[in-house]
């Protein structure tokens, strides 16, 4: 995705050519919907939230001064919206998409146990307190890039690292049997030695 394309489209939209916003929507619809899906685990709601994020981006375009990358600005705006939406109406036990999840090839190879385990981990993430869940979602969505995830959440990198550490620790306490063989990890809990 080209930053110059974004800049050009933004300039055209600000000049009054509203149709140029379509280019921005086409380029960013996938990432924004997928980020929303990670927050709410509901496809329909994810699209609604992404649409609202695009609308807010359209309204806020004059405020983007190009100091940060357009993608950073857009993700920060979307993340902020998704967080407040989820606090307003929590995702709850919306496991419909979990049930209708695309078939994992591992299930065919007899990896059903692994698939169930993965689902259990994701469900455990959904039950975490909001600030830890959001930290984990943004961190992993941004390919474990701490600065980008912190910018998206509008928090300091140190705060994000602390939340990641705490979030993982809570996950481990929720899934003790699954996490019996821990290895060293930058945000992992230290092994408890007897």
């Amino acid at each position: 995705m080209s930053a110059s394309e974004d800049q050009a489209d933004v300039a055209r939209v600000l000049a009054g050519e509203i149709a140029a916003f379509e280019g921005i929507v086409r380029r960013w619809q996938g990432p924004l919907i997928n980020l929303a899906y990670r927050f709410c685990r509901d496809r329909g709601r994810a699209e609604e939230m992404a649409q609202e994020a695009f609308l807010r981006a359209y309204r806020g375009l004059p405020k983007w001064r190009g100091e940060s990358a357009f993608s950073t600005w857009l993700f920060a705006l979307a993340t902020n919206l998704y967080r407040s939406e989820l606090r307003r109406i929590p995702a709850g036990a919306m496991a419909l998409d979990e049930i209708a999840e695309p078939r994992d090839p591992r299930a065919i190879d007899g990896g059903l146990e692994e698939l169930d385990r993965d689902r259990a981990v994701r469900r455990a993430v959904d039950t975490l307190p909001a600030k830890y869940r959001e930290a984990l979602i943004c961190f992993y969505f941004q390919e474990m890039d701490v600065p980008t995830a912190a910018a998206g959440l509008g928090i300091a990198e140190g705060t994000l690292k602390a939340r990641l550490f705490r979030g993982r620790k809570m996950l481990e306490s929720k899934l003790p049997s699954l996490l019996d063989a821990r290895e060293s990890h930058p945000y992992a809990c230290p092994k408890e030695t007897a």
């Binding site: 379509e22 929507v25 997928n34 994810a46 699209e47 992404a50 649409q51 992993y140 993982r168 990890h185």
Partner: peptide, 27 residues
Amino acid sequence: MNDRDLDRVLREREEIVPSSGFVASVM
């Protein structure tokens, strides 16, 4: 499951393909 497995599970992208009318709806 170790920490790397946990990373893998959390990192795994369940890609959602936007519905065909999404762009039109936003515009």
